[in-house]
Design a protein around this nucleic acid. Structure first.
Lengths: 400, 400
DNA sequence: ATGAAAGCGCTAACAG
DNA sequence: CTGTTAGCGCTTTCAT
């Protein structure tokens, strides 16, 4: 019954190996999975037989039998256009992939545009048990995958902006508000006191009053170029601008020019600057805070075109510390949010979840993972830390 | 025997649906696969039952049973660093994904760094029948996946530079030599006669002699910044520089400065320019041809830093027509290789292969596909066109 | 240490 | 039109 598949040219199966090794396929299976109980001599023969017939186990059969795919899927859920222009996505993919590989799993990336069909495909895939764990980087409002993940109680870690109300999943993010606040504060005051991590600002004793601060300001007439509000971080960064200017420039804060860009493209920022130049706003500005590096790039280019000096006439700041930040003159003052860590940490978190569940045999082990990568190495962390905040760094260069 | 799985909380199977619909699971299967022979009334009940139990077929079981995964895998095989900095990869991924989706398949992307382990993982996956077809974008010399694909006679379409000798696979590429030649010719002569597509230059009758041409040249002292020679297009583009200067500048061609950059980063180009400035070379140049836009960007930035005017003092050209090409001042004269088409075409080709094989039931249908997307709509093309050349466009702007 | 046998969840003839 | 019966290729008890 063993060599039933005598087809001419077919993919070799475990039966073929068994037959050639002169043993039963059960033993071959044991050997393949590194189980104990395979005589050294038999192992040798099996090993040779595998080479002889050029055998590789079928992924599908294996998945079906052991209810495990050994796959971690990274799902990018956004408009195709945003995916292409987002300079961070590749970093997330690459770093997640590195971590997943290191932990002994295989990562695959799924791209889902936000059209109904594409979304439905992904949903079927997920429901069909395509992977053992999911990393979701989303920009879809109220991402429909979230309820799905929950219903099927799947292992998932999310990041992006597709979740309004805090979902029952571990998420990874940076504190955009704190980071942008620190940056703006620096642009306006020239000071870089990273006092307190925002965690406990209750004990910030000798706070300088707004009045005192204003006196010392380097820049007092900032404008803000905001990114698309449905994209990661954009709303938080805008809020930071509002908050810091409200504190430091209480009189003018409400009337500060803010441009709402429809995308993260340089051209959008350039258009904003041009518009401000035409309506006279630009002449009254001494700083332009941009929601990210690309916008800053466009702003600087346009300022140059219009004959302005940066930062002489007007300071410009970015956000991301992308490669472009150092390729322009003047080099960009910005915030490094270490995107190369994002995927790495996310991957670590899902894998932890999966391993935990495996260990606590019970199928309902809570999905909270220890954030051992997030800077605070509380390894045995049983705290229900639902969202892991990654550290950012203020990067001071010439543009502001 | 039907409702054997009375576990508390388990993924519903086709049995659960059948039981609830009061029919056999075979009928449910028929319904699911749109086979004929399901009474309308039964269909209704099944449909309802599926909703009731929230059923989705298991991907693994389905794959195993019908020996088809309905997956097309795009494999990116390169060093992690190159992947992150390659501005084209996302476009390939996105466009391939769009096409695959449109054709009714699911695309997944696999990233394989060139370390042994990562490579081995991919090889096991492929051998294990992970996907029905593969798109390989590779920068690995003599990519080890190629022999694998051949041994297992898998459907694959490749692109990149990981294949030295023409492999037995359909490949997609652009004619780097022709495109770069046209660009350089334009930079030097100002002429844009795209005479003949390089296909038949035999009948180019009134060819201007080298002597005549030199007299009309706008630029006569070009330098070249070359990309890493193991990367897609780099060698061909360099060859184009050699060829065109050899023809147009026969006297000086051999002594033209060429810098071999180790990567595609702006900083590398900037360093090259700086070095040329220091050793006096730069003062003698009136044009810098760069192997891609990023390098051109770095060159221009550095030229500006050094007080040179572009294109006044020295013309600079790029290659790719990336988004950066229009964000810098002066905007880049470059070549558009329409990367957004690359993935689209590749995907179309594998899917054609798969469908063809399905049709000609014989398992050895030749893998040649018709290049119906490549511009020449020879749909019924049975020609063994192993490599599909995509069209490029010279994009003339201000920098050269 | 190893073989036999029973699934994993679904598809695909083959009979009714 | 629908149920029965074999598999798909591998894992996993349970005996031996």
């Amino acid at each position: 019954m063993s060599a039933k598949r005598n087809d001419f040219n077919h993919r070799p199966t475990i039966y073929d190996v068994a037959e050639r090794a002169g043993t039963s396929y059960a033993t071959v299976s044991r050997y393949l999975n590194g189980r104990s109980g395979v005589a050294a001599s038999t192992a040798k023969r099996i090993e040779q037989a595998i080479k002889d017939v050029d055998y590789t186990p079928s992924a599908a059969a294996r998945s079906l039998a052991q209810q495990r795919t050994h796959l971690i899927a990274l799902i990018i859920h956004a408009r195709s256009e945003d995916i292409i222009t987002d300079p961070n996505i590749m970093q997330i993919i690459a770093s997640a992939n590195a971590r997943v590989t290191r932990e002994g799993w295989q990562m695959v990336t799924l791209m889902s545009e936000n059209d109904g069909e594409s979304r439905a495909n992904i949903e079927r895939l997920v429901s069909g048990g395509f992977a053992d764990g999911y990393l979701l980087y989303t920009m879809e409002e109220d991402d429909p995958l979230l309820p799905l993940f929950e219903r099927r109680s799947m292992h998932a870690v999310i990041s992006g902006t597709g979740y309004r109300q805090q979902p029952p999943f571990v998420s990874v993010d940076v504190d955009n508000t704190a980071a942008m606040s620190e940056l703006i504060r620096y642009v306006l005051t020239g000071e870089t006191h990273s006092a307190g991590d925002g965690a406990d600002d209750a004990d910030t004793t000798g706070t300088t009053t707004a009045g005192d601060a204003t006196a010392a300001l380097r820049r007092t007439r900032p404008a803000y170029i905001c990114g698309p509000l449905n994209m990661p971080g954009a709303p938080e960064r805008l809020a930071a601008f509002r908050a810091v200017t409200g504190e430091l420039l209480p009189d003018s804060a409400d009337s500060l020019p803010v441009h709402y860009a429809a995308d993260w493209k340089t051209t959008s920022a350039a258009a904003a600057v041009r518009a401000w130049a035409e309506d006279g706003t630009l002449a009254t500005r001494d700083a332009i805070i941009c929601a990210n590096d690309t916008l800053a790039l466009g702003a600087i280019e346009e300022l140059h075109r219009l004959g302005y000096d940066v930062p002489g006439d007007v300071a410009v700041s970015g956000f991301d510390n992308s490669s472009a930040a150092t390729s322009i003159t003047p080099r960009l003052t910005t915030v490094d949010q270490h995107m190369e860590r994002r995927g790495w940490v996310m991957a670590g978190l899902v894998i932890d979840q999966i391993r935990d569940t495996d260990k606590n045999g019970d199928g309902n082990g809570d999905r909270n993972a220890s954030a051992d990568d997030a800077g605070n190495p509380d390894d045995a962390g049983d705290a229900p830390s639902k969202t892991v905040m990654l550290a950012t760094d203020l990067v001071i260069r010439e543009s502001a």
